[in-house]
Design a protein around this nucleic acid. Structure first.
Lengths: 151, 151
DNA sequence: CTAAATGCAAAACGTTTGCATATAG
DNA sequence: CTATATGCAAACGTTTTGCATTTAG
């Protein structure tokens, strides 16, 4: 934890950005909710619990900055809100998501399943892949068994 | 073309929706721009050329309806706008996209590249896949050669 | 004839911006 | 000390909504 903050601090300084208390507090919230997919508002409310002075605009600015630094990924699941997802340490690519259309739960998949597909894209379409977004929509394990019960 | 409109008409009627002139005009615009990724505003302006009385709200309502019927897919490439993409006839899954981070161009890929990956998801994560979204971010053929030239 | 759909304007929503003030480095 | 960052409120662009009116079936 302190480790990763230290690292982010260096990334910031290397581009003459400052690690302000607000930014640190924001990063801490993201680290504490690594599994979640928080909206800017969510982050704002959580940061506010410990640092009540922070403004929503600062949270937006911080999230955008972290996005540039590839510390977080900005995603959109189709509701009108952007969500921010911390990248795993050293992860080259964005991870995948399983979105349940019944209950709305979102599960993360770390494995990179697209190695072969990317090779195909690069050779067949001559497109140099930098990153990807992959989301499956379907029915999660829990909701599948719930549907069984209904019958 | 008339074919597909007829089909959509039946889909609408089967759920006691009406095929109004505005809806038909909207569908026609989508059919004429199958390769594009139009925003609601884009669609509105195009429909307006032929049916000037239409209102923006109607276009939004129509696009949402078509989305429910799985006639179009709503996508979001990260700019703050939703875009609407007609499904190919009989396509079970949403097609894929190659977004160029240099020039912003978007290319569609019809092939379903995810067959194996979906099988893996279903067996290993016990998640029943209904649909997917796959977008690659990278550098398109044209921008690659442009970068060569710069050197 | 009536439930469903429309157009319009107003409202709501998430997000961004301008600016005077504060502060990390 | 100064460039960078902040909080606030106002502005922004997209999308949704309420409502009186029209219309497809």
């Amino acid at each position: 934890m302190e480790n990763r903050i230290e690292k982010i601090k260096k990334q910031l300084h290397s581009q003459s950005y400052k690690l302000t208390p607000q930014r640190e507090a924001t990063v801490r919230v993201l680290l504490e909710h690594e599994e979640d997919h928080l909206s800017a508002e969510d982050v704002y409310l959580l940061v506010k619990e410990k640092s009540p002075e922070i403004g929503l605009a600062t949270v937006y600015r911080t999230l955008e900055l972290l996005s540039e630094l590839k510390v977080v990924d900005k995603i959109n699941f189709g509701d009108g809100v952007s969500r921010y997802d911390l990248r795993k340490e050293g992860a080259e690519h964005f991870h995948h998501h399983l979105v349940c259309v019944e209950c709305g739960s979102v599960k993360e998949i770390e494995e990179d399943l697209l190695g072969d597909v990317e090779k195909l894209i690069e050779s067949q379409w001559e497109f140099k892949v930098k990153d990807h977004r992959l989301t499956f929509h379907g029915i999660c394990k829990d909701c599948q068994s719930k549907q069984q019960d209904d019958k």
